[in-house]
Design a protein around this nucleic acid. Sequence first.
RNA 1: GGCGCCAUAGCCAAGUGGUAAGGCAGAGGACUGCAAAUCCUUUAUUCUCCAGUUCAAAUCUGGAUGGCGCCUCCA
Length: 487
Amino acid sequence: MPVKIFNSLTKKKEDLITREPGKVSMYVCGPTTYNYIHLGNARPLVVFDTIRRYLKYRGYQVTYIQNFTDIDDKIINRAREEGETPQKIAEKYIRAYFEDADALHVLRADVHPKVTEHIDEIISMVQGIIDKGLAYEVNGNVYFDVRKFSGYGRLSGRELDDMKAGARVDVDEGKHDPLDFALWKAAKPGEPSWTSPWGNGRPGWHIECSAMSLKYLGPGFDIHGGGADLIFPHHENEIAQTEAYTGQPFVRYWLHNGFITVNEEKMSKSLGNFFLVRDILAKFSPDVVRFYLLSTHYRNPLDFDDEKLHVAEKSLERIRTSFRLAESTLTASEKSSNQGQAEHIEEFTQKINQIKNAFIEAMDDDFNTSLALAAVFDFCREINGFINDSNFIPGKNVVPVLRNILGIFEEFHSVLGMVKPHQDEGTREQGMEEQLMEIIIGIRQEARKKKDWATADAIRDQLKQIGILLEDTPHGVRWKKIDGLHE
RNA sequence: GGCGCCAUAGCCAAGUGGUAAGGCAGAGGACUGCAAAUCCUUUAUUCUCCAGUUCAAAUCUGGAUGGCGCCUCCA
């Protein structure tokens, strides 16, 4: 069964047929680095990271490119405000970007190209488009002539004449059509600029992604992703200029994620209703944020408030509880000298394999993470029932089935990136913590043996007050932190 | 003005022609010294409304209402 993908260009779900069998080439629009990223920016990061992980899981060799727009008006303005050079501003926020993206366990792209390092490619592409007669120069600016490109408007589903009626675009003197867009912008005094055949200037708004995706992936690459707000004009223009230049189809599949909303309104910098990733990560763990972002299908809008992250936290905790149960039971079984036993191992194995297939089917269907998570929850319920069964005894005989469980968890984790707890830093501190907990639990167990419930409950209550939860189980005492901040 | 998307339980959210997944919250039960965790049962005769197509509709068609987005930088 092939992976199905909703293609924004055809507005249909299509079978994924890649340019080269077994390989996927992917380009995702990255940030303009003039600010810290907010949650709305984080959605495509996590969504396309998950898509990339899944395609890899499905056996594709994935090449993943994500750019940085490190020169543009906003960066220049920001530099003025902060009394810095545009270059320093871009560097600062690229560093900040990686801090946030790494925290969210977004895998790094194979290449993170920067606009300022690809000026030569951009200039030759602009020249190429001029040579083909689809762009023209006016006073050091080069504009793309949208009237001369027949497919213009196909991606965004609009006609040139419809747009003209309500157009709010600046009518630059010299443009053939108000919708003509800049491939190259003449430098204003004091702005960073590069030498070009049209005088000093810098790249226009959209040409960078065309030039860089072409350089690293070539014409007709597989997947181009980004937020739905990039469909017009950014991606529409990318298609026009690239296809004008190469004379070949630009991209096979266009993917666009829906918006994060706040009170049902789009989260955006211009509305000022945005929440920075780093501020959210001060209150919630990265895995909770990932879970939240993947709990809705990527094309649907997703509303944000703290309460929704709290719900995500609780939901994720259910998965974690099962994972820990399986993990600790495996450890106990491997150490145990008991034979161990479990009922209906075959049926159980069959069942969890079915669930794994349901997970794959869900992801195959246009990366339906919401449905895939339902499979993960089903998986957890099966495991809990299997291990907590009164006839279950840890020991050698159950090691293979437990390894099987952990293996499937590992597979889910490789795709979703938040099923397993990530290793905390500061392992030495953790080791100390564990030893302390062993001592405390030992003392409490002594009290319980003597039926000194008052002492036992006091220890449990006081630990709870500092955020440590004790659970008495037939196979011993478990403890976990409940502050929810860090796994 | 043009183009497009969405509407499913208290909340979140899958489901695109065959009789409503999953999570959170709630209720009852089992287990437990008591808890916690877990398991079992339970919570939408019904998918915004109206009309139509069909043996069959949350799913298709037409219309209405409400919400949102793009058309300017935005993920």
